[in-house]
């Protein structure tokens, strides 16, 4: 097993190439999931703010405005 993992003298090149492949695709697959969640969260916060503004007298939300 350790012999086949060493890939002859080429272990460094082969395993670095595979690491690059997986790291790049991992970043590529995680980024859009995080982006979609962030978009939904931002939109929810905006809708809540709008709702509070439309009905004055209701207690202000505890989020701080920039």
């Amino acid at each position: 097993m350790s012999e086949s993992l060493a890939m002859g003298h080429y272990g460094f090149y082969v395993w670095t190439a595979f690491a690059v492949f997986f790291i790049v695709l991992l970043i590529d697959s995680l980024a859009p999931v995080a982006r979609r969640r962030r978009n939904l969260r931002d939109l929810r916060a905006r809708l809540v703010r709008q709702e509070n503004r439309r009905r004055p007298g209701t207690p202000p939300s505890n989020e701080s405005h920039p």
């Binding site: 003298h9 080429y10 090149y13 670095t16 190439a17 690059v20 492949f21 790049v24 695709l25 590529d28």
Partner: peptide, 19 residues
Amino acid sequence: IGAAFTLITLVTGSLWGKP
């Protein structure tokens, strides 16, 4: 996604070209 695969192609090709 295309850019990611192109980057992988170039880097793995480089790692293959060296030896």
